[in-house]
Design a protein around this nucleic acid. Sequence first.
DNA 1: CGGTATTTTGGCAGCGCTACCATTTTCCAT
DNA 2: ATGGAAAATGGTAGCGCTGCCAAAATACCG
Lengths: 358, 358
Amino acid sequence: MADKDALSMHDDALAGRRASAGPHVGSPMGSGAGVTLTDVAREAGVGESTASRVLRSHGSFSSKTRASVLEAAARLGYVPNRIAGTLASTGSKLVGIIVPSLANIVFPDLLRGANSVLGKAGFQSVIGVTDYDLDGEEGLISSLLSWRPTGLLVAGLEHTPRADAMLRGAGIRIVEMLDTDGVGIDMVVGFSNREAGRVSARHLLGRGYRRIGYVGHDLALDLRAAKRFEGFRAVLAEAGLQVAAEAIGAAPSSIEAGRDGLARLLAQCPDLDAVYFSNDDMAIGGYFLCLARGIGIPGQLALFGHNGLDVARCAPQPLSTIRTPRVEVGETSARLVSSDGPPAVITLDFELIEGATT
Amino acid sequence: MADKDALSMHDDALAGRRASAGPHVGSPMGSGAGVTLTDVAREAGVGESTASRVLRSHGSFSSKTRASVLEAAARLGYVPNRIAGTLASTGSKLVGIIVPSLANIVFPDLLRGANSVLGKAGFQSVIGVTDYDLDGEEGLISSLLSWRPTGLLVAGLEHTPRADAMLRGAGIRIVEMLDTDGVGIDMVVGFSNREAGRVSARHLLGRGYRRIGYVGHDLALDLRAAKRFEGFRAVLAEAGLQVAAEAIGAAPSSIEAGRDGLARLLAQCPDLDAVYFSNDDMAIGGYFLCLARGIGIPGQLALFGHNGLDVARCAPQPLSTIRTPRVEVGETSARLVSSDGPPAVITLDFELIEGATT
DNA sequence: CGGTATTTTGGCAGCGCTACCATTTTCCAT
DNA sequence: ATGGAAAATGGTAGCGCTGCCAAAATACCG
């Protein structure tokens, strides 16, 4: 860290990374806030546009000029004003990301994938959290749009009519993530939750389980979990079966909700031989309940989750579940958001993990 | 068919959303993108500044004017351009948040707290992830600063000299989070990790454990974990003891790393009576190992973590740990970032949770 | 009803930067 | 040298909005 130019605009594409001009750091007084391009240009004895070109490594300039501009910028502690830059140019180098929650690791995973790719491409992520509220999402969309982002990544395909209209009319790339069961606005990156539910059901049926229960969280809010459950029941129905009992909590998914949900389910219907959970958090809760009560897994009761979290993979008995490519969805979405191809739907594969709980 | 309810309700919701993709909303052509305040003003038959005042509910205007401006804006699908607004005014309504990682739920928790408070106050969060790299942090700081945020929230007190200089010189509110063991730049919100380590050690000693091991992750990167360990060892030293053995992995913390770390630790030193983990993820990994191997907890081996995660609280034997106020730190930081008081250090309490593993 | 408060309103100058264009300088081949 | 192409450079018009100020409309008072 000893030797980058103070300018350090972070975009590595910029020239000047190796200029190593400044003898020291810290600007003379106050700081770089307030130092404008005009100041730098004057200090370097060049025109404004020349300074701008150098700082952005865009266009041509002599290496002499380059050096003096960089030196002046470093000495003054110049920090470019991207707000002004964005207004003057076109693309904003901002990408909005909207997720329903940050409490479930699934979404931070998504963010992580997206942010890492975006960062490398010189974009900044602006986030919005809807708390699973579509009206809240509508507000966030309008709010994010006002920053004139290059594109918007949104979890889910369902939106209010107004949100839908805003997204369509925004004139920017929209990527809807994590769900391919439906019609997208522009780009869609994800997997089929319905199919995941189907695969889960087939797995349980294939293992011979017949008295199957379901433990889930609020389905009116988590539309993707609802689609999984739908696919799950469809397969059961094809086999002439149905879910023997279900416990659906009103709270968001959590380990505790899974534990309590399974307790209620068993109270209501003690002779189940397998339980499908809305996701791994819930399933781990169920698993903990079984451990606590000495319920044999999978002999007495089989457990199946969804997502493929670390905690599920590392449990004494690895949880049978479906690993979803959350980080990859984020990465792919980020890659697409600045592309200019035609609208597309990208379906990524999920993976059935045959753990030790089925 | 008894279970049809949940789904049908869900189906309706989906159908409704999809069906009513609005007849209007959004301008005749293209869309709201491109519609400027000037357009709205012209359409409403008022001056630009009047339209601006109405749309911001700032200043005075007749209710008649208000109605026509609002109507025009709605009809044209006007979306204000905050970039231009920010450039023209002063405050940016953007707040930068820098965290080392998104893979550990601790930081999403922090983000969640901060973002929820910020959102309510009309701010947008712009995030940066350093991957525990201080040089990366430096780049992110400079990058975020270029968006002229109202303030910056940063996890941790340690920065490169250059980053430190940039933060001091930025002329905006800086809040350093999650650590009060050191000197801050402006505001600090967090708790003492060193003290948390001390409290943890005292707890173990108080329960009579004497042969204590440590399982941690890369301490050169996670400075806060290092401070905890330091406090922990200090108390042991005061009691004339020292850590009997330690296993420190090079990878970031994870359940798997905790499991493997404990395995190595036990291989190397089988007669421990307690283990202190760098955090709950690691501790849960250790717990799982004990379950798998049939190691009695806490009889044979006691486990102690840090953070107070859900998974630790809900385990069959709740983990003994320290609950840290992560969300609160985020909330408090967000509240402070737009304040104008003098610099301050706010120390929040952590809580010792006497679980069943010690 | 005149005259002074008060409320509304519109014009316009930037905010800091980039894009475009015109100009100047440098570089070559002749 | 000498014209012409290429490289460098500087001037300047906005980008869309807000803040300031003066002008216009309305309200109020005796």
